[in-house]
């Protein structure tokens, strides 16, 4: 689509279906990584910043964003650190991930934010950092509004 022809308010919109992990509906700006995330030893629970040494998102925060990531790795403190991030007001608004594990399931549950997985297409291929993403977990729908680039 050519920029000159597109109406200014008609950004590209994509709808994907998936499975609810934690119910609810929330929207926000996406922060996307292809690296799996560690909880304990991987994030700063006070401000939601990724701290792992060789991580793509090192120094960036997921606070109030829609976190799109492959899944969890590392310590069993995963849920406890996302739990504390919530208590500190530093948790993501919603989560979308690919690979189900006990770490990420429990972490999503205690974050109390809508979370989805098993999207019909790989969210890491479709969602880019800065896109606006609505996660309607109750209805199993993710709505992506591409950022104009």
């Amino acid at each position: 689509m050519s920029d000159t022809l597109a109406p200014t308010n008609d950004a590209a919109r994509i709808v994907l279906r998936g499975r609810k992990v934690v119910g609810g509906c929330a929207e926000g700006e996406a922060i996307v990584t292809r690296d799996t995330i560690s909880g304990w030893g991987g994030i700063n629970e006070r401000d939601g910043t990724v701290i792992e040494r060789r991580h793509e998102l090192r120094g960036q925060s997921f606070k109030d964003k829609v976190l799109v990531f492959p899944g969890a790795k590392g310590s069993s403190g995963w849920s406890a650190y996302f739990h504390m991030a919530r208590l500190n007001g530093a948790s993501p608004r919603a989560m979308i991930f690919n690979k189900m594990t006990t770490k990420v399931a429990l972490g999503a549950v205690v974050t109390h934010a809508p979370a989805m997985t098993e999207l019909e297409r790989d969210p890491l291929q479709i969602i880019e950092t800065g896109d606006w993403v609505k996660v309607d977990a109750d209805n199993g729908i993710v709505e992506i509004t591409k950022r104009r680039r």
Binding site: S76, G77, W78, S79, A80, H83, T102, L106, G107, V109
Partner: peptide, 21 residues
């Protein structure tokens, strides 16, 4: 499985954990 602080807390009180993985 790799359990967490909350799931072990709940398992300790109930003697149950999800049958998964």
């Amino acid at each position: 499985n790799t359990e967490g602080k909350e799931s072990t807390g709940a398992a300790a009180l109930t003697g149950r954990i999800p049958y998964w993985g």
